[in-house]
Structure formats: C-alpha cells, structure tokens
Design a protein around this nucleic acid. Structure first.
Lengths: 323, 323
DNA sequence: TAACAATGTGTAACCGATTACACGTTTATA
DNA sequence: TATAAACGTGTAATCGGTTACACATTGTTA
C-alpha cells in the first residue's frame, strides 16, 4: 500500500498539500490538486484510516450490539444499518451479546479502544457515562435513553387486538413477551386497552424469552393448560408460528377452529400455510433511521428528533377468520 | 481515556516499561510490573488499539462479507464467526454484499484501509492479489480458493436423495439452486448420483436465486407446470417451505400426497407443520471453524488443513412419508 | 502606494502505541 | 578477578495520517 509520503514525492509536493488536496480543506492551487490526483491514481493510493483515526480520535466505524442475530428480526435491522452506514462512509463492527450478559460492557470498552465514532445498541444496560461516544438505542428502548429509534408498540398491540375483535374473538389467549423487554409491555398495554372495555374473555400466558426453543415448549404447554382457545394474540411471530404448528398437529384448522395473529412480520410468516397475519415492524427502516440518527449525532449537526418512533402495520394473511 | 504516557507518569516509569509490562515481552522487574499494574487499575487504562494497529500494520479486526443476511442461514454462520473471533480477541467488521455487485471490491479496499488482519468471505470474486491480507472463503467455495471452509454438498445431495428413495419416490421434482453457486451444483450432482442408477422418473426445475420472492413464485409455477409430483427434492429450505405452503393451499396433504425434503435446516424448518425434513448444514460450526482457520493463518502458525469440509446431516421431521 | 487580506505551500508537532538501541547493573563463567 | 551474558530501563524513532504555524506571493482596498 502506498503512503501519503510516496504520493507527495511522486507529485512533487509536501505531504501537507497532499492531505489538503485529499480532504479539500485549506488552500490548494489547481495545479497542485491535479498533480496530487494524478499521483493518487498512479500509485493506487488509499489513505490509511487507522492513521487518520489515531489523530482524529474518532474512526469511521460504528459499533453495533444485538442480542441475538439468529432471531430473524435482527438481520433485517442489521441490513438497514449496514446500508445507511455504508452510504455515509462508515463501517460496522458487530457484537452479538446475550441479553443480560456482561459482554455488553466488554464490547463497549473494546469499541472505545477502537475509537469507534458511535454505537448502536439493542441491548439493555449498554450505556454508561464512562464511554464518551454517542449511543443510539434500538428497538428495545427505555424511557431514559436520550437517543432512540423504536416502534410504537402500543399502537401495534392495539392493531393486533382490534384485528381479533373484528373477527369473532371467542376466548382469547394473549402470549405476552418477556417483561424485561420494554416493547413487550407496550404491546400488552395496547392489546389490553382494546380488550378491557369489552366483555371478551381472555387469559395471559407469560413467556421468558424470544427463543425458538421456548416457543415450542410454550405451544405445547398452552394446549395442555387451556382446553378451549379461539383466538391467539402472540407478541412475537415465533410464538405464533409455534402455536400454529401445535394446533395443526392436534388437528385444529386455522383459522376456522383457532385464529392466530403474530408480531414482527419476520420473512417466514409468508412461508407457512395459512400465511401468518401479523404486525409488521419496519425492521429495515428502523435500522436505517437509527444509523442515520447516530451519524448525524456524530457529525454534531443539530438533531431534529431525539427519539424516533415508527408506526407498525397490520399485515393480513390467512391465519385470521374473515371479517 | 487514559494514555500510556499517563500510566507511565503515575507509575513512575517510562512508556517503554509500561508497554513491556503490558505485553509481557522484554525484561521488566517485578517491582516495575507491580507499579504498572497498579497504575493501570487506578487510571482504568485500556490501550488504544488504533495506535497499536498503526504501528503493527495489522489490527485486531477481521472483515466479514456475506451475500445476504436476511437469508436465515447466514446469521447462524455469523454467530459462529463472532463467537470464535471474540474468544480470540478479534472483532468483526461486517459488510452485506449483493451477489455479483462490485461492492465486494470496495469493501476489500476499505478493509485494507482499516488494516484488518484478515477476511472471511462468502461472496465470490472477493479475492484478489492486490489485497495482501489472508482470506478464507466460506460456504460458497471455488476450486481455486486456497483456504476454505464449506459443507460437503455432494454428500448432502446424496443424503437427501436417498431419504426420498427410501420412501416410495413416485415422480420426483428436483429444485436446483442457482448455477452460479458452486454448492448448488454439488447438491445436484449428489442427488443425481443416487437417482440416475434407478428408474425413478424425475425432472429438474432450475432457480436463479435464493430469495423468498423467487421461492414463492417458483412454487406457483411448479404446480402449474408439473401436474403430478410425488416427491420434491429442494436444494434450499426456503424453496421447500414455499412448496409446502403452495401444496397445502391446493389441498394436498403432506406427506401423504406429496413429500418434501429441504436443505439447510434453517431454524424455521422446525416451526412449520409438518416439520420440514431437511439436510442440516452445520452453519454455526462452519463459521466458528472458518474464523479459527483465519486467525491461525493470521498468526502464521502452520496450518494443518487448508480446506475444511464439514459433513451435513439428515434431519428427519414430518414432511417425508414413513419408510 | 502602503497596508492588509487572501492564497498557496512546506516544516514540524501531534495522535498513542511499539520497539531498536544505548547504557547501566547484576549474575554467571572461565 | 576479569569478562561475558543476562537483566532492567529510558530515549527516541516509527507507524501514516492531520493541522498549527511560519513564510512567501498575489490581490484588494483605502
């Protein structure tokens, strides 16, 4: 790899001039600019980002922490982040951090050592005043987070519950997500705000995590525990899919015997029969917007919004009865 | 963030001694070692990786290029990579690169500018002698790749075809993956090596990509084009799931009327009814091993194997008939 | 035309680590 | 006891950029 010194020598100017030509700041004569550009082309020069980052104390990298990439919601998020970051000339250092592990802090330290310009995190307890870089919380957001991008989960809960209410609910089972995830609580609040004013019978099944293993187990428990359920309001597509599978295994027809609505709109919801009706979280957009907010923060351009709330949508497929 | 200079001053020694104490090379008296350790603790010092990387011309980062993280096979791969890299003190810079786009080269240049220690890539045409760092190809591997970690797809194809042959195949439809992906070809070779010696009737449907959109479209085409199919050998779970969905939509029973086998064992294959029988690619392990190989390459410890081939497994669920 | 601003360029300091080299002290060996 | 080897430490060069500062030249304004 060529260095700036070699470029300077080849162009017959000083390194300072090369640097100024490169970054288009300071005064550079047209002639010098040309000479430098030629030299750069001739030597296939690309500036060393590490050296830059050392002086600037800030690299062109952002850190990303996600709780579980094998959950299909997160790859979409990630794709949005990566795309926006790339468009802005940033690259992404990725860390997979189990919910609740102290790995999050380790990664934050590492990010500090790497001079990352900022951090995007969907893992709780990541933030700390120790680390100076700006941080935008994603998806799983707390009241006290200054910068955050997330979905309006109350609205999502309302949409889901209304979809059920519109379609002869019968006896309803709500599968509530882990209490530790703020979004789950909002979804539940939204759902209850629709159900409570009516005289619909409902019960709540509380889950501990968002893993497939627990989803399968829960589905079995549920059919054992609740003999008669007409409608299932799941706060997560994985649980909804597991319920559908278990129902079909037991010979129940969907949606005639039992109707199901999910939450997330992971890509697979389209690939089952009947298609899973669900609440679509704009995962890609969420990631894209979050990266955008972070990069604006990094550039210290005044931020218009500190917390960006995106609206979810109802996606109707075959797992609900007709209106 | 404290610097090595501050640590040196606090400990009452020179920066050289601090550095030697830190990296445990060169001579350091016990006394000095203690003083340095105390200073480090007191000042919460963490060495700046950027400065290190500048001098060493090699950072503690590896680059990762994947063709499409929204394909659920890749997040598992990624998880394995991240875990191994972290255990070895490396972090991962991630790039999502559409198959065939020239973004791959851009990322390789970027990786060079960032002094990454090595690259893991599942995207073709990434390698080039221009970039000096070691590169390990993943999953989609060509003959000429020096370092590679991949699944024995011929064996996978054989396993899949045998599973069908053992269960009254009837008329078989093979859904072959894109010809541009070397693995698809191997899968097909494996399948045909089982089917050809028999007198089973089969046809091949050729697909162009691995996207969900194409999978859905293909499933519809297939049922329109081939009136009678008893067994489907898909080279990808997405296509298998799409076929199952379309079959069920048309009132066919699985596996009685049509049996289906997939390839990949993505997490969702468990979550449909009936469960999708499939060939399991050890995605996590693949990623883990690939990262391990790369890091050994970086350390220039002599490499025992240049190409690591992992064996796939047959995972039996409900989508095949009983033997 | 004197005074000052704008333009253009190079030298050297700086970012925060690692390490070659020089030098002094202690220990081992002949 | 002379001499080499091992030990311990500090100074300064280095990695490859950016930029403060000094200085020269040209253009503008009173």
């Amino acid at each position: 790899m060529a260095t700036i010194k070699e470029v300077a020598k080849y162009a017959g100017v000083s390194v300072a001039t090369v640097s100024r030509a490169l970054n288009k700041n300071g005064y550079v004569s047209e002639e010098a600019q040309k000479k430098v550009e030629n030299a750069i082309k001739a030597l296939e020069y690309y500036p060393n980002e590490v050296a830059r980052s050392l002086y600037q104390k800030k690299s062109k990298m952002i850190g990303l922490l996600l709780p579980d990439i094998s959950n299909p919601y997160f790859p979409l998020l990630m794709k949005g982040i990566e795309e926006n970051a790339r468009e802005n000339g940033y690259s992404v250092i990725f860390g997979n951090v189990e919910e609740g592990s102290e790995l999050g802090q380790d990664y934050m330290t590492l990010f500090g050592q790497q001079n990352v310009a900022g951090v995007l995190s969907a893992v709780e307890g990541t933030w700390s005043q120790k680390h100076a870089m700006p941080i935008v919380m994603l998806d799983r957001v707390l009241e006290e987070d200054d910068y955050a991008v997330y979905t309006n989960d109350i609205k999502g809960g309302i949409l889901a519950a209304q979809a059920i209410m519109d379609r002869e609910p019968g006896k309803v089972l709500i599968i509530a997500g882990p209490k530790s995830v703020p979004g789950s609580i909002d979804r539940l609040i939204g759902m209850l705000s629709v159900l409570n004013p009516t005289d619909v019978e409902y019960e709540i099944y509380q889950t501990q995590s968002f893993t497939i293993d627990e989803a399968e187990e829960a589905a079995q428990n549920i059919f054992r525990k609740y003999k008669k359920v007409d409608s299932v309001l799941a706060s997560n597509d994985l649980f909804a899919l597991a319920i559908m599978k278990e129902a079909q295994k037991r010979g129940l027809r969907i949606p005639q015997d039992i109707q199901v609505i999910g939450y997330d709109d992971i890509p697979f919801s389209r690939l089952v029969y009947p298609g899973l009706t669900t609440i679509s979280q704009p995962a890609f957009k969420l990631g894209y917007e979050a990266s955008d907010l972070l990069i604006r923060l990094i550039g210290k351009n005044k931020i218009d919004k500190k917390r960006i709330k995106l609206d979810p949508d109802l996606i109707i497929r075959g797992s609900l009865r007709d209106k």
